[in-house]
Design a protein around this nucleic acid. Structure first.
Lengths: 147, 147
DNA sequence: AATAATAATGCAACAGCGTTGCAAATGACA
DNA sequence: TGTCATTTGCAACGCTGTTGCATTATTATT
């Protein structure tokens, strides 16, 4: 694992540093879209806020993570497909649960094509669906039945 | 026009005040999604920043404007359909031009349905397409041909 | 293993966004 | 016209994200 992380950094031409390793580690462990605040919560005693910001920026540029549009501020998630500096490709759907607050990539759902008006050209697409994730929907149903 | 604005406010149970009239006026005049900063630019000599924030918040709650997801911060646009406090309904596409920076509602393009994984429930959907609007695409082509 | 070159970090400072509390001003309505 | 609830402006604050600069760590090279 330790190895995987350093391999990933090296593959993207980045030096291995404590902050980068731990940020990447956190993304792998949490497996959900994280905000800067989420990361700062975990890492602030060991690293400076600014360093975390710069790490996110670097990872974004190098294609290790991608930005996830959220109704409140920015989040980031690992690129599962192999992205590089020049070729970030993400056309999957993002889902935010209004109950637990988690935002996730639905990797295998990709954004349906939309017929734009004449002359318009699409470059990037971002689809965010908000609602209830399977877990929350289930436990809310359970709670409702109890009444 | 002046009349329309006050009617709209009244319909949503809001008092007519200078700031509300001018903010609404600005939305009608600019016909594009506006950020708080855009409004502040136009109105800051007449109204306080905070008042503009509160006006946006009120309009949002009452269903006069809706939030538009943007890659950098929040924007707002008029609700064309008739929304109320309890019933905000927006399933149209938002388009942001990477050249001129404008974000617009494509009212008549609505978001295609997506088959979510089992157990998931959708409540809101937000599709942002970024690229070139017709005007910018055309003028960029023209410029390219000149070389 | 030591070094030099380059890159990353921490710190301080700053700008912008968005919110809150409170006193003063304003709008709606009798 | 006066009353009351609502809205406004102001001051202050916290959070997000950025920049410049001196220090420290990583990497490649000898």
């Amino acid at each position: 694992m330790e190895q995987t992380i350093n391999d990933t950094l090296r593959e993207h031409n980045l030096r291995s540093t404590g902050c980068r390793e731990e940020v990447l580690q956190t993304f792998l462990a949490r497996a959900t879209a994280l905000s800067h605040g989420d990361l700062e919560g975990d890492l602030k005693d060991r690293f400076d806020r600014v360093t975390i910001y710069r790490t996110l920026k670097t990872f974004l540029e190098k294609g290790i993570i991608h930005k996830v549009l959220d109704d409140e501020g920015a989040r980031y998630a690992l690129c599962r497909e192999h992205c590089t500096e020049d070729d970030h490709h993400h056309d999957h759907v993002h889902f935010k649960c209004n109950e637990c607050g988690q935002t996730n990539c639905l990797e295998n759902l990709h954004v349906p094509a939309v017929q734009l008006p004449t002359g318009y050209r699409a470059q990037e697409t971002n689809l965010l669906i908000q609602g209830l994730c399977a877990d929350c929907a289930k436990s809310l149903d359970g709670r409702a039945r109890a009444f």
